[in-house]
Design a protein around this nucleic acid. Structure first.
Lengths: 201, 201
DNA sequence: TGCAAACTTTCAACGGATGAAAAACTAAAA
DNA sequence: TTTTAGTTTTTCATCCGTTGAAAGTTTGCA
């Protein structure tokens, strides 16, 4: 596990992330240049790109591990767990675990979230990542509930569930509400989705 | 309404769109350079940006008019129309009208859709536009069903409905199904969303 | 110690995007 | 028709993110 090479790489990676976040916090995302980030982390600009595919990706460095969590949840579910329960569990876990991944400091999470929600380029990227995760999850569910859940049903379920939670959270945040209120909104939204829209209006 | 100036502007706008789409079809989106598009439309590269804010925007030139359609649908609804009916109507109209906006040729629509679904940069942009439209729609619904629909409920409804349709369509397309099958999938998805996810799995 | 593999730096280039000033054009007034 | 004022286009210069290639440096191992 050790090896100077490995450790050094992890350190540079961390340095890049921290430099980036520090600068983003100070001057804003668009105002921060890659050259500045690289300088702050003491590497050449070129090297940045052997750690991250793009400037945006510094913010989304833990997406793979989060996706693994949810596929694991699907894989390890009780054989008789109903779909709505599983989805609810996954949603709760994702929201709760939003507050800090294993490898990365909890303190940077609020900043990252704020950036994702306010910087248009990051918003678009986040939505795209969320979208591909949803497709993956839908496929996994179709597999896991084989015979009981068609591809379209799986996609509809995931899309409705995640779509409702997402928009409820963002609408809440946009109205200037607190993070707790936003999470409440997400829970209400999932309830509504389980119950069906016929119960509304 | 006339005026040489006005007409000329419309013509260059059209020329830019057509040049861009022609080149995208021939060589692909990323492979086409802005300089080539401008040359094909006989304007300078700089002028492109007084017509479109970015390369991506050539593809999304009719988004405002489409959004207006849906806000009009909300504004002009029958006072007693139930929310689910209105949402269904809006979804149908949006999907049907996907086939050609007033100002623009119908033949280019399939190409535009294909590009939006396959080019990552355009995917992200499309998702972002869809997202902001949804927020707008949710606000409009909260207004229109004032007293009967909280902001969170409106957001949940829109998010669930659109999310289900979106993911069902994309899952279908990704499985290599035809456009008709994809639209069927969308309809099934909206049905499921109206009925609620408890009925699944 | 010395060699091969992995990693970093430097350098050059491309494409998208933006600001500013010069040039070309249009729509009116004189 | 000529002048003039306003609008649009071009030209030019520049910035930033991103990528390829070649040269230089560090690490791991024989």
């Amino acid at each position: 596990m050790a090896g100077i090479r490995e450790r050094k790489k992890q350190r540079t990676r961390r340095a890049l992330i921290e430099a980036a976040l520090r600068l983003f916090a100070e001057k804003g995302y668009e105002e921060t240049t890659l050259a500045e980030i690289a300088a702050e982390a003491d590497v050449s600009t070129r090297t940045f790109f052997s750690y991250f595919a793009s400037k945006e990706d510094v913010i989304f460095h833990d997406m793979e591990s989060r996706m693994e969590r949810t596929t694991a949840a699907v894989r390890d579910r009780a054989p008789d767990e109903p779909l709505p329960d599983l989805l609810t569990r996954i949603a709760r876990d994702a929201l709760a675990h939003a507050a800090g991944d294993e490898n990365y400091a909890v303190e940077e999470t609020p900043l990252r979230i704020r950036l994702m929600m306010t910087v248009p380029a990051l918003q678009a990227r986040a939505l795209h990542l969320l979208y591909t995760s949803q497709l993956q999850l839908a496929r996994a569910l179709h597999e896991s509930y084989r015979g009981r859940l068609s591809p379209v049903e799986a996609a509809a379920a995931v899309g409705a569930f995640a779509g409702a939670a997402k928009l409820a959270v963002m609408a809440s945040v946009e109205r200037g509400e607190s993070m707790d209120q936003a999470l409440d909104a997400a829970m209400v939204a999932t309830e509504i989705t389980l119950r069906g829209l016929r119960s509304l209006g």
